[in-house]
């Protein structure tokens, strides 16, 4: 497991057609320790996706440094697993082959990578779905596959961009609980992006509030794990933290 460091990160979008520049990220510094779960929360348009895409290597950054385990990142790579809001499963691959894709790219032999994939599918309660195609699954199940596919590749850092935003509210709560459970087992370094304050607090060890391309504040979350929504909803500490974060986000 490795940590993630952002040092004075900035990003300016340049539109060659209109000739306009958009300063999406001004100056963001952030340290995610190895094995830490950090949520980044902020209003729409504050630059969350931009930051994640730069860390993932999908976008070049304009200034500053992005380090994983102390080494600067260059382009996309398997050390940074990504879970997408749109799931981004390969429609032409079965659930099993989707999850086995990362190991396949690492050159793991078929029998071995299918064994790995089955293990991870079992953790997420997806064993039954192994032979099915993504289009045959519900949205909630598709995103379970998306999470498990990223985890099965054993990345140093797991990046998640509003992964549960497009599933219904009940399923979302189940997925959040499952994520805390799975994470408690694997203890990956996670950067979780969301605009949902409750989600940010529920999942994380620490919540970072982002505003207009800058870090506004950080709030530590010391709630015990594993976490359940039934407990969290009754927990005054959870209420207090959520209110505190919400206040910051609204001030943003």
């Amino acid at each position: 497991m490795k940590g993630l460091t952002l040092r004075h990160l900035s990003k300016t979008y340049f539109d060659p057609y209109s000739g306009t520049r958009v300063d999406a990220i001004h100056d963001v510094s952030l340290q995610v320790e190895a094995g830490e779960f950090v949520s980044v929360v902020g209003p729409s348009g504050c630059g969350k996706t931009t930051i994640l895409n730069m860390i993932a290597g999908f976008l070049p950054h304009s200034g500053g440094d992005i380090l994983v385990g102390g080494k600067p990142v260059k382009g996309p790579g398997p050390d940074r697993g990504v879970v997408f809001q749109s799931f981004a499963l390969f429609p032409w691959k079965t659930v099993l082959d989707n999850v086995a894709f990362g190991p396949k790219m690492r050159g793991v032999a078929r029998a071995e990578r299918e064994k790995i994939a089955r293990e991870y599918l079992a953790i997420a309660g997806l064993s039954e779905a192994a032979g099915r195609y993504p289009s045959e699954l519900s949205g909630g199940m598709q995103q379970r596959v998306g999470v498990v596919r990223a985890l099965a590749n054993d990345p140093d850092v797991l990046l998640m961009d509003e992964p549960f935003a497009s599933v219904d509210a009940q399923t979302r709560m189940t997925l959040q609980e499952e994520l805390t459970r799975i994470w408690a087992e694997k203890r990956n370094t996670v950067l979780f992006i969301t605009h949902d304050v409750g989600e940010a607090v529920f999942l994380a060890d620490r919540v970072v509030v982002l505003t207009k391309g800058r870090v506004l504040d950080e709030i530590k979350v010391g709630l015990p794990r594993p976490r359940k929504w039934d407990d969290a909803n009754k927990d005054p500490e959870f209420q207090r933290l959520s209110a505190q974060v919400l206040e910051k986000v609204r001030a943003a």
Binding site: A56, P78, G81, A88, M105
Partner: peptide, 15 residues
Amino acid sequence: VPPVLARAAQSLGAG
């Protein structure tokens, strides 16, 4: 082909 699929593959180690 949605570009996000190519990104997903790259993040899983595809060249």
